[in-house]
């Protein structure tokens, strides 16, 4: 186990930010911490890193208790914060080199690792630039390079793609996969379910400081009753037809507005075929049809009754 958090409780006066939180991160995985803003993701990370005091619970990293003085543990951790944390006065190269030198004593090793980190985030053309001259996406890449230059075994990324353009986002996500492929264990926090779904091998859904569910994305989706969403472009549907459609097998809810029929079905086989049969048999004109498998947002919605981005 790379990270083991047991019954972590963190209070800010009367507000319980972490409520008996439990997490287990295994070696070599990309572990996602998914939850809406204010759910406790960053607080959990700050406690894991021994930046924040907590009221109760235990945290072990690499099998040892984590503490502010646990330098042997810290040496193998890389952190990419939500806020860009670089010196405005230093160039791209100098920033990466400085943060790398906090971990590595050998000067020539620092140089080598700095160059590798620059190459990794594709900032070769910007080494002499100051952060102010970089775009938001490039700045995020610099932030990542500062966190991973020393080749840590555990990398924690706290919402690294906030306010990043799609091109840079893809670059960042590809980079994270590569770091993982090179052997690093990753903890990735986000409120973007698409990213977590695309990236993470295991996910914990967190809300109000509690872990609501943990598993692979398929395991999480299997936990809910929702099967698939069928969307049909249908014209001039009558009330009784909508009523009959709602009585089809496995249909759990139905909505019709602006010629768009949305059917949520429970888990089961041939849900789409039943709908198509009905439309054909009743000679209902229809246009596009598409189906969508449940997302992590649906999982979150079913567990908490609210959207991830509420």
């Amino acid at each position: 186990m790379v990270v083991e958090v047991k019954n972590l409780v963190k209070r800010y006066d009367k507000l319980v930010a972490l409520d008996h939180l439990n997490l287990n991160v295994e070696e070599g995985e990309i572990f996602g911490l998914l939850g809406p803003n204010g759910s406790g993701k960053t607080t959990a990370i700050n406690c894991i890193l021994s930046l924040l005091k907590y009221d109760k619970g235990t945290i072990e990293i690499f099998g040892k208790p984590m503490s502010p003085d646990a330098y042997d543990i810290k040496r193998d951790i890389g952190i990419i914060m939500q806020n860009v944390a670089v010196f405005e006065e230093l160039t791209v190269y100098e920033n990466i080199s400085y943060f790398c030198s906090l971990y590595i004593k050998d000067k020539s090793e620092v140089k080598r690792l700095t160059r590798e980190a620059i190459e990794f985030v594709s900032l070769e053309d910007f080494t002499k630039f100051h952060p102010k001259k970089l775009s938001g996406g490039l700045l995020r890449r610099l932030n990542i390079a500062c966190g991973i230059a020393h080749k840590p075994k555990l990398i924690i990324l706290d919402e690294p793609t906030v306010a990043v353009d799609p091109q840079s986002r893809n670059k960042i996500l590809e980079g994270i996969k590569k770091l993982n492929a090179d052997g690093a264990t990753i903890i990735y926090t986000s409120h973007y379910m698409e990213e977590v779904e695309q990236l993470c091998s295991r996910i914990s859904i967190i809300d109000k400081g509690k872990v609501l569910a943990t598993g692979t994305k398929d395991e999480l989706k299997a936990m809910i009753s929702l099967g698939e969403k069928i969307t049909v472009e249908a014209y001039n549907l009558r009330e009784e037809e909508i009523e009959e459609l709602s009585r089809l097998a496995n249909v759990s809810s139905i909505e019709y507005a602006d010629n768009c029929l949305e059917i949520k079905s429970k888990k089961g086989k041939n849900n789409l075929i039943h709908v198509l049969d009905y439309l054909q048999n009743h000679e209902i004109n229809f246009g596009k049809i598409y189906t969508q498998m449940p997302t992590l947002n649906d999982v979150f919605l079913e567990i908490t009754g609210k959207e991830l981005r509420d």
Binding site: L51, Y71, D72, K74, I79, M81, F87, L102
Partner: peptide, 21 residues
Amino acid sequence: QADQSAIGARINVAPTNKFKL
């Protein structure tokens, strides 16, 4: 200081003695 700036937080995570720094 970690509670004063993002840079402070990053520095506090590093395995460098705070007083030396």
